[in-house]
Design a protein around this nucleic acid. Structure first.
Length: 517
RNA sequence: GGUCCCUUCGUCUAUCGGUUAGGACGAGAGAUUUUCAUUCUCUAAAGAGCAGUUCGAUUCUGCUAGGGACUACCA
């Protein structure tokens, strides 16, 4: 009775992958992995008019970056292919014919223009049991007429024949039973005349059946059409193997009304796509999480918790932990506002947990962008700096606003003093004003002299020379020392920093400060 | 307009009839730190409304209000 778990993520290649789609894919992944099942990657390209070149490749690259592994599908192969719907035309044809043969579907000749006209004269017009006999189709016309029209080359669609007056119940794992009366459903087009391809509804059911999909986990926008899907399974006689449904709550805009749309992102200051997207038609560029410096693990963690939680207070968890803890029945029903501020916090958490050496490549690029030559010496500095755990010395008080290190790129303004001497000293800086007074230059000259005499220029070596002197004279040179080396109130312990910079650089910075301040 | 779904702090959420309604983000305050940050502590902040069921409702039912989705030869 228990079927093998097989789930699918089936995007349309109409553009970049939306962040909501990423979450849907993630939930499918978690569910599949937890049950030792398969995750299928199917491309639903039955709308030839909306096809966007490059979209499929973009989606594949996105999942690669995100760390979501599919078991079979487009670009992967498998026993249930082909996995691109445009390559399955013959299959769909066969199955529509089945429905036509058993009277569950019929042929309709009404053109889009005729239908538009109907709708404009009656806003509530619906192609269904109450109207279909007034329309031009194989139900209202004789078979001779139909045959003649087809022979004459008239285009037609295939519509699903829905009998009114019946309650269809969809058992949803998240929402429970959802009931809809067939009287409010219309005779959906199953097969289009325009591109000789099936519509989503038909292709979806046929593929899910043939690919032995056990659970359909998709966005809530599909809930209204799920009764139609149930009816289709019945029409085919597949109700016994019909997949179980789970309709996920939608991702809503962080502010205002409505669901998160593709255009919201860059307008509101966060990406809605995993990767940067260059639109081939308009040439517009939409930002991506990857390029913004997000860690894929952090993004996944953040997304997972938008609509689901393990039932306790745990928030930061790895993909493997999520696989273990995931539970469809624990998903919330209401849409979740996309709180990207929390997403930034997740990135902060993951960045902090990483070994600083892991960011070296990315940090390297930043150094290069700031004109610091790539030399072995510099490489050593980077590593040395990572060892000093610069992450612990993040900026913070930029006037009133607290800011954590959430991205590697946040690092540069907070640690550039490791690489470049301060060029100007901001006398208005509170820290500088407070710690550099009349007597300071003299104290700094003494400090420089003392440091010059230190043979062993290490933390311990300096300590041995400076601490007793400070004790004796009552001088407190550290903050001014910091002003000289850093330019402001930032950075690590002065002995550590000086040791890192080396004797020459340290003394040179002190002298510069004496001269300029 | 019609159909369906939903409703706990500003946001994401916990609670599966009995709790001082918990956590996290964000906000505010403080402690620690020779600086900044990290870290830690604390504070403010919620059951949409109205009925009903019950000894007892945030939790169950109904209604109202609000939000959302769908309503194509798009997915």
């Amino acid at each position: 009775m228990e079927r093998k778990v097989r789930v699918r993520f089936a995007p349309s290649p109409t553009g970049p992958l939306h962040i909501g789609g990423v979450r849907t894919a993630l939930y499918n992944y978690l569910f599949a992995k937890q049950h030792g099942g398969d995750l299928i990657f199917r491309i639903e390209d039955t709308d030839s008019t909306r096809f966007v070149p490059g979209a499929e490749e973009y989606i594949i690259e996105s999942f690669k970056w995100l760390g979501i592994q599919f078991d079979e599908g487009v670009s992967l192969g498998g026993d249930y292919g082909p996995y691109r719907q445009s390559e399955r035309k013959d299959i769909y044809k066969k199955y529509v014919q089945m429905l036509l043969d058993n009277g569950k579907a019929y042929i309709a000749f009404d053109t889009p223009e005729e239908l538009d006209a109907k709708r404009s004269e009656n806003e509530n017009f619906q192609y269904d049991a109450s109207t279909r006999m007034q329309m031009r189709n194989s139900l209202s016309m004789s078979s001779d007429e139909v045959a003649a029209l087809i022979a004459a080359g008239h285009q037609y669609v295939v519509r699903f024949r829905i009998d009114p007056g019946r309650d269809v119940v969809v058992h949803d794992i998240i929402r429970g039973d959802v009931s809809i009366n067939t009287s409010v459903l219309d005779d959906k087009v199953l097969y289009k005349s325009a591109d000789n391809l099936p519509t989503y509804h038909l292709a979806n059911i046929v593929d899910d059946h043939l690919m032995e999909v056990s659970h359909v986990i998709r966005g809530e926008e599909w809930l209204p059409s799920s009764p139609l899907h149930v009816l289709l399974y019945e029409a085919f006689g597949w109700q016994d193997t019909m997949p179980r449904f789970a309709h996920l709550p939608l991702l809503l805009k962080p502010v205002g009304n409505g669901k998160l749309s593709k255009r919201d992102g860059d307008k509101l200051g966060f990406p809605v796509f995993p990767l940067e997207w260059h639109d081939p038609q308009s040439g517009n560029v939409s930002s991506g999480y990857r390029e913004k410096g997000y860690l894929p693990e952090a993004l996944m963690n953040f997304l997972a918790l938008l609509g689901w939680n393990p039932g306790n207070d745990q928030e930061v968890m790895s993909l493997d932990e999520m696989v273990r803890l995931f539970d469809l029945s624990k998903c919330s029903k209401a849409g979740a506002r996309f709180d990207y501020i929390k997403g930034i916090w997740f990135n902060h958490q993951y960045l902090l947990r990483k070994d600083p050496l892991e960011w070296t490549p990315e940090f390297d690029a930043i150094l290069r962008a700031n004109g610091i030559e790539s030399t072995p010496e510099r490489e050593a500095k980077v590593v040395g700096m990572m060892r000093l755990k610069v992450i612990e010395y993040t900026d913070g008080n930029n006037n009133k606003k607290k800011r954590n290190i959430s991205f590697v790129s946040d690092l540069w303004p907070l640690c550039k003093f490791f690489f470049v001497a301060p060029v100007t000293y901001d006398k208005e800086d509170k820290f500088v004003r407070k710690n550099w007074g009349e007597d300071t230059p003299d104290m700094m000259r003494q400090l420089a002299e003392r440091l010059q005499g230190v043979e062993d220029f290490t933390v311990d070596g300096m300590k041995a020379a400076i601490d007793p002197w400070a004790e004796q004279t009552g001088l407190r040179p550290w903050n001014a020392w910091r002003v000289a080396l850093v330019g402001t109130g930032q950075g690590p312990d002065m002995y550590e920093l000086s040791a890192f910079l080396g004797k020459d650089e340290t003394i040179s910075r002190i002298n510069t400060a004496i001269a300029r301040l």
